[in-house]
Design a protein around this nucleic acid. Structure first.
Length: 416
RNA sequence: GGACAGUUGGGAGAGUGGCCGAAUCUACUACCUUGGAAAGGUAGCGUAGGGCAACCUACCGAGGGUUCGAAUCCCUCACUGUCCA
C-alpha cells in the first residue's frame, strides 16, 4: 500500500508520479478526500468515546458511594446513541478508503523510464553473444519431444492444458538446475528456506496479489487457502507483523517452490511449449533490508541472476522496465531476458523488483531503528525460472541432429 | 469426526465486570557502583492512530453480542494441546 501520509502531505508530487504509472488522477484526488473525511470521522468518534469513558468511570464511583445514577445514566445513554452513529460513519469511510487504497499500485522510482508497455523497456546491457548456428535452430518443444524429455500430451491428460510432464534426462536436468541455482544463490549469501505451497489470504494481501488479482490464483475449494503464484509470497510473509532488530538485516533468502498461475489474461499466448505453464518450478530470491540498503541489495540480486545465466553460458540482456510494464507492487524492476535461438528473440527468464516499503506497509514488516520502528524494504527476484532455463538450454545447446549438450556447470550435477 | 483444556506485552506467567494497557519473574536499554567485569541498586521498556506537549483513542487469538462500563460474561470462527474414535 502506498503511504497515505505522504500522499496527503505531498499530494501533487506523489500524484504526478503515480499518473506516470497510469493511475487516474481523479481517483487519487478521491483517495485524498476520503482520507481527510476518515480523519474527521475518527476525531468525532474518539471525542465521543472519551466522554463515554469518563462518564462510565463516574458511574462506578457513584455506585460505590451509593449516589443516584439515574441522571448520569440518561446522559450516558444519549451519548451512546451518538457513538453508534459516529462509529458507523467511521467504519464506512474506513472501508471506502481501503478499497481504493489497496488498489493503488506502488510509486515508481524516479529513474524508471516512461512508457506504455514492454516495447518501451530500456536495455541496460547484453551479456554473452549468441552463437551462430550453421543450421536452422529448432524451437524447444520440438527438441523436447524429439529427445523424450518433455511430454506435453500426458500433462494435459493428467490435468489440463498448460501442464506438462518431464521424463528421464528432462526430469534430471530440472532437478540439477534447481540444485545448481540454490547452491549458487547460497554462495551469494542467500539463506535457503523451504516454505508451504499454500498460503492464506493475509499472506497474499501482504505481498499485494490480493485483493486485486484473485482471478490469477488457484483457490482451494471451501477454504481460505490459495496455491502460491511465486515463492515471493510465503518467503516475504515469513516476517509478516514482526519487528526485526537492526542487526538481523538485511535478511537474504532463497527458496525453491512450484508456482501456480491461472494465466487468466494470457489466452492464446505461448500456447505451445513450456514458456507459460499453470505449474512451473522457480528458484526465488527474497530480501528484507533497511531502506538505505535496498538499492545495493537490488544490484546484488540482479547480478546474482545474471551471473547464474553466465555460469550456464546463456546469452541474455538486462532490461529496465518502463512505467507501463512495471508490476503492481514494484517501484523498480529489472528483467533478465535470455536468448532463444529457436524463436530468434530474447524472452524473460527473471524479474527482479524492489518494492521499497509498499509490501512492508501491507505486511507490517518493521525493524527497530534505535527507538523508532521503521518499515523495511522488500525485494524479490527469480534466480531463476527453471522451465524457461530448460527451454534456453535446449535451444542454445542444440546440435544439428537435435541432440542437446549439457552446460559444463551442470555436468557435475548429472554425474557427468 | 467427538470430548475437554488453552490462546494475555521479546519469553515465562498472573489477572472472572470499574482502581487493568495489564501484577510478577526474566530478557533488553541507560545510569550508579567497579581498575574492569559479575553481583547489587535506580530508572526506562508493547503496537498503531490523533494532537505531535500534557494527553486522548484503539488493541489481551479473530469477529459479533450483553453492559453505563469487558482481558474478565455470552455466541461464532481460527489455531494449539490432551484424550477418545
Amino acid at each position: 500500500m502506498i503511504d497515505l501520509k505522504l500522499l496527503q502531505k505531498n499530494f501533487d508530487e506523489v500524484s504526478a508520479k503515480l499518473v506516470r504509472k497510469g493511475v487516474d488522477a481523479k481517483l487519487l484526488k478521491k483517495l485524498k478526500l476520503k482520507n481527510e473525511e476518515l480523519k474527521l470521522a475518527k476525531i468525532d468518534f474518539e471525542t465521543l468515546q472519551a466522554a463515554q469513558n469518563t462518564m462510565s468511570k463516574e458511574f462506578g464511583i457513584y455506585k460505590r458511594e451509593g449516589k443516584d445514577v439515574s441522571e448520569l445514566k440518561e446522559r450516558v445513554d444519549e451519548n451512546k446513541l451518538r457513538i453508534v452513529d459516529a462509529l458507523e460513519i467511521q467504519r464506512v469511510r474506513q472501508e471506502e478508503l481501503e478499497i481504493i487504497a489497496m488498489a493503488i499500485p506502488n510509486i515508481p522510482d524516479d529513474d524508471v523510464p516512461d512508457g506504455a508497455d514492454e516495447n518501451d523497456n530500456v536495455e541496460i546491457k547484453k551479456v554473452l553473444t549468441p552463437k551462430e548456428f550453421s543450421f536452422t535452430p529448432k524451437e524447444h518443444w520440438e527438441l523436447a519431444e524429439q529427445n523424450g524429455w518433455i511430454d506435453f500430451e500426458r500433462g494435459v491428460k493428467l490435468a489440463t492444458s498448460r501442464f506438462s510432464v518431464s521424463f528421464g534426462m528432462g526430469a534430471k536436468l530440472e532437478r540439477a538446475l534447481i540444485n545448481f541455482m540454490l547452491n549458487f544463490n547460497s554462495k551469494r549469501g542467500f539463506e535457503e528456506v523451504s516454505v508451504p505451497a499454500l498460503v492464506n489470504r493475509a499472506a497474499l494481501e501482504g505481498t499485494g496479489q490480493l485483493p486485486k488479482f484473485e482471478d490469477d490464483l488457484y483457490k482451494i475449494d471451501g477454504q481460505e487457502l490459495f496455491l502460491i503464484p511465486t515463492a515471493e509470497v510465503p518467503v516475504t510473509n515469513l516476517y509478516q507483523d514482526e519487528i526485526l532488530s537492526a542487526e538481523e538485516l538485511p535478511k537474504k533468502m532463497t527458496a525453491y517452490t512450484s508456482c501456480f498461475r491461472k494465466e487468466a489474461g494470457a489466452a492464446g499466448r505461448d500456447t505451445r511449449g513450456m514458456i507459460r505453464q499453470h505449474q512451473f518450478h522457480k528458484v526465488e530470491l527474497v530480501a528484507l533490508s533497511k531502506p538505505e540498503e535496498s538499492d545495493k541489495i537490488f544490484e546484488e540480486m540482479v547480478t546474482c541472476a545474471s551471473d547464474l545465466l553466465t555460469a550456464l553460458e546463456l546469452p541474455h540482456r538486462l532490461m529496465t522496465l518502463c512505467t507501463g510494464d512495471l508490476g503492481f507492487g514494484a517501484a523498480k524492476t529489472i528483467d533478465l531476458e535470455v536468448w532463444l535461438p529457436g524463436q530468434a528473440t530474447y524472452r524473460e527468464i527473471s524479474s527482479v523488483s524492489n518494492t521499497r516499503d509498499f509490501q512492508a506497509r501491507r505486511a507490517k514488516i518493521r525493524y527497530k531503528d534505535g527507538k523508532q520502528n521503521t518499515l523495511v524494504h522488500t525485494l524479490n527476484g527469480s534466480s531463476l525460472a527453471v522451465g524457461r532455463t530448460m527451454v534456453a538450454i535446449m535451444e542454445n545447446f542444440q546440435n544439428e541432429d537435435g541432440s542437446i549438450d549439457i552446460p559444463k556447470a551442470l555436468q557435475p550435477y548429472l554425474g557427468m
